[in-house]
Design a protein around this nucleic acid. Sequence first.
DNA 1: ATTGCACCTTAACATAGGTTAATGCAATCG
DNA 2: CGATTGCATTAACCTATGTTAAGGTGCAAT
Lengths: 194, 194
Amino acid sequence: MISSFALALRQLCDLPAEEEAKVNAIAFSETIKRGEYFIREGAIPTRFGFVVRGLFRYYYLDTKGTEFTKGFFPENNFLTSYTAMKAHRPSYFAIEAMEDSDVVAIDYHHWHSLYAGHPCWQRFLLALLEKGYAKKESRERELLVFNAEERYLLFREQFPNLEARIKQHMVASYLGITPVALSRIRKTLSMTHT
Amino acid sequence: MISSFALALRQLCDLPAEEEAKVNAIAFSETIKRGEYFIREGAIPTRFGFVVRGLFRYYYLDTKGTEFTKGFFPENNFLTSYTAMKAHRPSYFAIEAMEDSDVVAIDYHHWHSLYAGHPCWQRFLLALLEKGYAKKESRERELLVFNAEERYLLFREQFPNLEARIKQHMVASYLGITPVALSRIRKTLSMTHT
DNA sequence: ATTGCACCTTAACATAGGTTAATGCAATCG
DNA sequence: CGATTGCATTAACCTATGTTAAGGTGCAAT
């Protein structure tokens, strides 16, 4: 169970075997049931995680209580409310399990001493942030440039096979539309295409 | 002219005086006239910059040639198509001067040896990326959660006094609407509010 | 099999924002 | 000084998406 985590670490940047051993020593496994949270809205994050099995989403609520889904995180993704964790502030979004999931987690304090102990972890963090930044940049573009139907098609490209695992209203809230609108879009696509 | 740049560096992270001297030695000034580019769409970036005077925007075009403005960058902001520069790839967006502007620029190769020469530059880059990431995150939220009128009000909050310096169609393309729609929004605001 | 529930679809209507084109208005130029 | 140019506004109409509410549909519990 730790191994897919170790692989992901290596893919992001080279780590000395020694440091890899250290991170494995401080990492711990968690099981999170469908509907439960890795981080709740308003909580100060104490750890970050890595999805070994299952599926998560990040979401927040507006003032009227409407849900908005920032993103989906299936297997082999890191989970973190990074800005909040770094600043010791409450997370303004929640990280919710959409399926029964297994996570490898690392406590922030432990991470901190790891980070202070060897420069490779700074490189690691940089690589993670660069990836996250690129992801945000492309999502920003999607929301700015494309209409709902185009965003839906992009969603299906970017998360192949994921649609079957996600409730329709969560896909809709990721696209920034209502479930009704998504249903309509699906219909027009099935009529023109198939 | 270099000094506001040095200040901005220090605000991001602590730098040894030695390293600060080095960066000042490799930095060079550029003047960019209104309507000209710091980076063109499709060009491989060779440098990054810092706005000492003036105003820039990042924008891209969709397939129909419609402009979309990613963001505005007045004085005291860094300018870079970071992902493209790092990967030696063409930038998919352009950085255009909206006023006659002064920029302090640093060549990527010089930056690279600076970066390799002292760990403080990694911290610096990390701080810059973290800031950029937080900015992208909040823009993503704006586009997902708010309607055009709300986004317009947010724009005015986030860039106080900037509206007077920006053509209406550029504000509109930042908000993801047409100039006509922005004109309508302004009208309804002036009727209800004043 | 029957019921209940959660979810999706559909329909009817309302609204925000897009499109096109005409008008206004101020800065510049001859 | 009038003409030209470049924007911003306005109006009329159109389309995409929101809202509300009424069916479907399939699965789970009994």
